[in-house]
Simulated scan of single mutants.
Amino acid sequence: MAGAAPDFWWRKADWRSAALRPLAAVYGAVAAHRMRHAPRVPVEVPVLCVGNFTVGGEGKTPVAIALARKAREMGLNPGFLSRGHGGAHGGLHRVDASGDDAAMVGDEPLLLARAAPTVVARDRVDGARRLIGEGCDLIIMDDGFQSAHLAMDFALMVMDARRGLGNGLVLPAGPLRAPLDEQMRHADALLCMGEGDGAQDVPNRFERAGKAVFRAAVQPVNVDDFRGRRVLAFAGIGNPSKFFDSLRSAGAEVAVARPFPDHHPYTHAELQALLAEAEAQGLALVTTEKDLVRISTGTGTGAALREKILCLRIEAVFSGQDDAARIIEQTISRGRERIGRSGRD
C-alpha cells in the first residue's frame, strides 16, 4: 500500500477509527472471505511465504533475504517471488538487479534480486512456475499472504515488536489487512522483529495454538561509516522511525529526520533540497538501501546525486542460531509431503 499510513492507526482507537469502523467491517468481511475461499494453486516445489498482518514497515524484505542466504547454505537454490509493489510492470518479468528500473519492477525486488533469482508477477502462480523453470527448488514469496492464489507450505508472519498491530483494527480504521483471527488461522509461525511489547498477546496466542514464535532484529552492517557522524536522514519506507533508530544504534547523531511515504518516487527538486539542507548544516545525507535503489535507478539527475548520498546497510539476524534453518526445513518437509500426496492421488 503506497502512501503514508495515518498516525492514528498506531495509537489507541479514537473518534477517527470509530468513524471508519463501518467501512472496516465491510473491508474485513471481504478480506476474510477471500482468504477462506480463494483457490490456492499448488506448484512442484515448496513455497515459503514471508508476510505480515498489517500494512508495511515490519522488515519482511531483510527477513526474506536472510532466509534465502540460509537456504543457499543448506544446498538449496531459492528464488524470490514478488508482485513488484510500486513498479509499473504489468506482466511476468525476471528482475535484473543491475539493469532494471525501480519504477518498473519496484524497489524491493531489486534488493531481493541481489540475493537470489527474483521474478515479479501479477499472477504469482505463473511467477512461481517461471522460477521453477529456471531451476529454483524453493520459492520464497515476499508478501502475498492475504491475496496470492498460490498454495503456501509455510507462512511466516513478521510483526514489529514495538508497533505491534497498532489499534488492532482493519483497514481503513486501522493497519490490519484482514481480521486477525482469520489471518492467524492461515499462519504457521510468528517472527517478532526488534524489542518491545506492542502486541504481546499475539505471540501468546501463537504459542497457545501450538505455533512457533521466533525473534529477530534488524542490525546495521556498515556501522563504522556512521559512528560519531551528524546526519540528515530521510526515508520513504513503511516505518521510517525504525530506520532513524537504526542510525542511532550505529552511533550516528540524527540531527534532522525527514520521513516520506512508502515507495516515494523522489523528484530531482526534492533531492536537491535535501542535499542543500544537509550541506548548509554540515550534515551527511543518508538514506536506506530501498530508497537508494529508487534514486539510483530513477532519472539521470537522481542517479547523479547518488554519489552524494550515504546508505545504511542492514540485515535481519535471528535470535536463535538455528531458527532460519528450522523455518526452511519445515517448509521443505511440508512441501515434499504435499507433493508426495498429489503424486499418489
Score class of each variant (00 low, 15 high):
Ala151Phe: 01
Val119Ser: 01
Cys311Ser: 14
Ala128Pro: 09
Ile309Tyr: 15
Leu67Lys: 15
Arg229Ser: 06
Ala148Trp: 02
Ala173Gly: 01
Pro42Glu: 14
Cys136Trp: 01
Glu279Met: 13
Ala269Tyr: 06
Leu171Tyr: 05
Ala115Pro: 08
Gly282Asn: 00
Ala233His: 13
Val221Asn: 12
Ala303Ser: 09
Asp142His: 06
Val254Thr: 07
Phe214Gln: 08
Asp7Thr: 07
Ala278Phe: 04
Glu329Asp: 14
Leu110Trp: 02
Gly302Met: 08
Met141Tyr: 01
Ala161Cys: 07
Gly87Lys: 08
Glu253Ser: 15
Glu207Val: 04
Glu307Gly: 11
Ala209Trp: 02
Arg208Phe: 00
Met193Glu: 03
Glu108Ala: 08
Leu247Ala: 03
Arg162Trp: 12
Glu253Asn: 14
Asn52Val: 09
Arg40Trp: 02
Asp262Gly: 07
Asp224Cys: 07
Arg94Asn: 07
Ala88Gly: 12
Gly320Phe: 02
Met193Phe: 06
Asp107Met: 01
Arg130Leu: 11
Pro39Glu: 03
Asp160Trp: 10
Ala212Phe: 03
Arg83Asn: 06
Met141Gln: 08
Asp291Asn: 10
Gly86Arg: 00
Ala5Met: 06
Leu247Thr: 11
Leu81Pro: 12
Ile132Met: 10
Ala102Lys: 00
Ser82Ala: 07
Ile339Glu: 02
Thr288Asp: 04
Val95Thr: 01
Ala113Lys: 02
Asn167Ile: 02
Ile328Val: 10
Arg258Asn: 04
Val213Trp: 05
Glu73Ser: 15
Lys211Pro: 06
Leu138Gly: 03
Ala71Ile: 07
Leu247His: 04
Ala276Gly: 09
Thr54Ile: 14
Ala173Glu: 05
Gly28Tyr: 13
Arg208Val: 09
Ser342His: 12
Ala280Asn: 13
Phe80His: 02
Val120Tyr: 01
Ser147Thr: 10
Glu182Met: 08
Ala189Ile: 01
Pro220Leu: 14
Leu20Ala: 02
Ala325Met: 05
Lys290Ala: 09
Ser296Phe: 13
Ala155Asp: 11
Val50Ser: 09
Val47Ala: 06
Phe145Lys: 12
Arg83Ser: 03
Glu329His: 09
Pro220Glu: 09
Gly298Thr: 12
Gln146Arg: 03
Ala217Pro: 07
Ile140Lys: 08
Asp123Glu: 00
Arg129Lys: 11
Arg114Ile: 08
Arg94Thr: 14
Ser17Cys: 05
Met184Pro: 00
Ala250Met: 09
Leu247Trp: 05
Ala116His: 13
Ala304Trp: 15
Asp225Cys: 13
Val317Ala: 15
Arg162Thr: 07
Asp224Ile: 10
Ile328Leu: 11
Asp225Thr: 04
Glu270Tyr: 04
Ala250Cys: 09
Gly300Asp: 15
Ala303Arg: 12
Leu81Cys: 02
Gly194Val: 01
Ser296Glu: 15
Glu277Ile: 05
Asp143Asn: 09
Pro6Val: 03
Trp10Thr: 00
Gly56Tyr: 13
Lys308Ala: 15
Asp188Cys: 13
Ile65Glu: 06
Gln281Lys: 15
Asn204Cys: 04
Ile339Tyr: 03
Ala284Met: 13
Ser249Val: 09
Ala31Pro: 04
